[in-house]
Simulated scan of single mutants.
Amino acid sequence: MKRAHRQRKPAKKHVIEAEAWDEEVEEEPSETEAYEPEPDETGWTTSTAKMAGLSRLVRVGVWALVASGPVLGVLAFLGSSGPAQGVTKPVAAATPASPVGPAGFAELFVSAYLQAGQGSERDLAPYYSGSVALAVKPGTRTATQSTVIASREVQPGYWSVTVAADVTAHDDKGKSKRLGVQYFRVGIQATGPAGAGGTEQGPATAGYAATSLPAQVAAPTALKPGGLAYETERGASSADPSVETARGFLAAYLTGTTELDRYTSPGTRLQPINPAPYAAVKVTGVQDDLSGSGQQKVPADGTVLHQLVQIDATDQAGSPVALSYALTLKSRAGRWEVSSVDDAPAIRASSPPSAAPPTTPSPDAATATPSPSPSNS
């Protein structure tokens, strides 16, 4: 017997254009019996009410994703900005220890030491905390000038500093006698940052202490300068065009009587000494590095000439002052022009300085290690 098929009549709905997803659509009851599907072969049944619930569930999930979008974005950004796993962070380069602080402290210590005497030992306390007993009368010696000529870090934070002092002696009658330049070596311990001579690599308070009283040492070995590169002697002849240029330039440079531009190459920036220290300039000797006995004719454009010029400059009081200037000249348009005032006279590269034989054996103040001395407690 065949089952009688039911007549399907769709339910009438009011179509509503919802502005929000969560508005429900109401259905009008059908005049005929609503069609309820029977379970299919899988056992699932579908109804209008169940579909509406599923739709609401989907809409809630979509809104949850939209609301959590900014939070997920922030978490992703923070995760990507963190340090990558396995990537080695760059290590900051260590700051090299500076000798400036220990050197200045040693210079002050030597000056105080030379001035101190019996009864004024406490003046050395800021520099040296060891026991001190001086027999000399205070003020017997003074350092009219002093400077550091060598400093070397013998251990981390521990420095050997050599100070040159121009010493003057004073007797009981008030007379003074210059003893000349004497050399004193001091051991200085430094604490604090490496920039102050210590061992720390970060911000720290610097401190210094001498490990003993100064030790007087011999002068450093004198050197005989290497050969100069100026092999040709020109004398003070005014007939040489290069000498004329040097004379005019130095007169303008030291006296300010004329402009430098007429003696310098285009683009050369040199300023005269202001105020002018001298009233007149006299060339007493000129050496250069061009071969030939005479240079009456200026060579081709672009030729470079190095000069060493000796002069007597007369000051405002009429006293002559001997000076030397190393100049570089270039030829242009049939004349010599000054292109620079050199930092130092040129020497031949094949002629390094040599040590003069010392009269007595003595350690080199620049490289010798100070004798061991007890550290401050």
Rank of each mutant, 00 (worst) to 15 (best):
L54C: 07
S111C: 12
S30N: 14
A93P: 04
Q189Y: 07
N376T: 13
S30K: 06
G61W: 04
G82I: 02
A366P: 02
E33Y: 04
V281A: 01
E27K: 01
G53C: 05
A93R: 10
G174Y: 06
V163P: 02
A64E: 00
E200R: 00
R122H: 13
S242M: 09
P370Q: 05
E26H: 05
V132Y: 00
E107T: 12
G79N: 11
D261R: 13
G79W: 11
Q310V: 08
V136I: 09
Q85P: 07
P220S: 09
P363W: 01
R269K: 14
G256K: 02
K89R: 14
A276D: 04
D312T: 09
V60P: 03
L270H: 10
V281D: 03
R348H: 09
A150Y: 08
E121H: 10
V66N: 01
Y263R: 11
S47A: 12
Q189C: 03
T95V: 15
V286D: 01
T142D: 07
Y208I: 02
Y128W: 01
R262A: 15
P193E: 01
R59D: 03
R234T: 01
V58N: 03
G256Q: 00
P96D: 04
A251K: 13
A204C: 08
P241E: 07
T255V: 05
G82H: 06
A76M: 14
Y263H: 15
P272I: 11
T314N: 06
T205E: 14
V217A: 05
A133M: 09
V91N: 07
S339N: 11
T142A: 11
Y208W: 01
K89D: 12
H170E: 14
K330R: 14
I347S: 13
V338N: 02
K175L: 03
L78V: 12
Y208T: 02
P277L: 08
I347M: 09
I273C: 12
A356W: 00
A313I: 07
A52I: 12
S176M: 00
T314K: 14
H14E: 12
Q316P: 04
A326D: 00
A239N: 14
H306E: 13
G235M: 00
T142L: 10
G226I: 04
A322P: 14
